Amino acid sequence: MSYLKNWWVTDYADDIFSYFLRKEKTGMTFRCRSPQLGERRRLVDMLRLVGERLQLGNTSVHLAVRLLDLFMDNHRVEVAHLSLVALGCLLLATKFEDRDLNVPHVPELHRLVPHCYPLRDYRAVEAILLEFFSWNLSLVTVAHFVEFLATRVLGRGDLVRGAELVGTASALTPPPDHPSTGPPPPTSGAQALRNALLERLQYFMDLALQDEQFMLHRPSVVACACVLAARSRLGVWPAWPAELSRLTGYSDASLLSCLHSLFR
């Protein structure tokens, strides 16, 4: 999906979002039955660390974790090879989601993780993964939905503890592809809130990524629950406005189960 650059701010963003909603209903079902779920947190932390160090996109890391979850759900992997499988998932996800320049090389991975594997092992595990997924890596993740929802995390008419915000219109305008080199303009109250919402949204995304129970929900539900959680925590009212309900098809009541899991 990397060829859809900044799709979430295009004229056809709503159509792509609707396509993602349909697509997430197809494909493999995660059943949380891997005998090695106890190793999952360590593997996810490793993938997140590598993603941060190599400045990979959220969609690459989330796709890697989703591939790993589905593969582990259907295989018993030797503990000594789990890290290799996880890194193989990251390599494939990055090739699919990121720019070619961002695809990590094996020596880069070896500098970041405590395990070193021969290049032939990476090639072998990539081949096994591709065969298992029938070469179809076009899986929708929480990060794909959040890309869209992040541009709508703050709306006109939103209130914070009953008060209107200053500068809401400018805060709702997406940043240009090539920002000016001059000094940044003063941050309005709305822009500061939007930045805080995006930080909190990232926090809840990371939280959901660490717990395999969130894989039992559809990615769109988790993404919407993360937005609802971020807005609720920062006192934005309504916490789930009618516009987001219309765009996503979810009421706030339908997100409560996932929301409670984020807050526990």
Rank of each mutant, 00 (worst) to 15 (best):
D69Y: 08
L154D: 09
E126F: 03
L56M: 04
T141I: 12
V227L: 10
P238L: 06
S254V: 02
R53E: 05
F71A: 00
A253L: 07
L129S: 11
L92R: 10
L37H: 12
D15A: 14
D45I: 02
T151Y: 14
S34M: 08
T10R: 06
C224F: 01
S170T: 14
A192N: 07
A86C: 02
W7F: 04
T29F: 08
E126G: 00
F132M: 06
E147F: 09
L247K: 05
W8L: 05
C226L: 12
G88A: 04
P219K: 09
G57R: 12
E126L: 00
L119F: 03
W135R: 15
A242D: 03
L207H: 15
F96K: 13
G249V: 01
W7Y: 06
A163F: 02
F132T: 11
R233P: 13
L228V: 02
L262T: 00
L244K: 04
S220D: 13
R99K: 13
E212M: 08
R200A: 13
H217E: 09
C258M: 06
L92Y: 08
R33L: 13
A80E: 01
V125E: 03
D14W: 03
R161W: 14
C258V: 01
L244N: 05
R194K: 15
E131C: 11
A93P: 10
L172T: 09
L109F: 01
L165C: 01
M215C: 11
A239K: 11
D121E: 06
V79I: 01
A208C: 09
G182M: 05
T141S: 14
L109N: 06
F132H: 12
L193M: 10
M72G: 04
D73H: 07
L154K: 14
Q202Y: 11
Y117L: 05
G51Y: 00
F132R: 12
N136Q: 15
E147T: 03
P241D: 02
C224N: 06
N6H: 08
H217C: 14
K25Y: 12
F204A: 06
P118E: 02
Q191K: 11
R161C: 11
R31L: 15
P114N: 02
V146W: 13
N74D: 12
S170W: 07
A64L: 01
A169R: 10
H115L: 00
S2L: 09
L129R: 03
M72T: 04
P35W: 09
E39F: 10
L137Y: 13
N136A: 14
H178E: 12
K95G: 02
P179M: 12
V227I: 10
P241T: 06
A196G: 13
R246M: 01
S251M: 04
A169D: 09
D15P: 05
L119R: 10
D15G: 12
L149C: 15
H110Q: 07
A196E: 15
L209R: 05
V221Q: 09
S180C: 07
A190G: 06
R120Y: 01
P184S: 05
T26L: 15
C89M: 08
L256V: 07
F20S: 12
T168C: 05
S232T: 09
P176M: 07
A80R: 03
H81Y: 00
V236G: 03
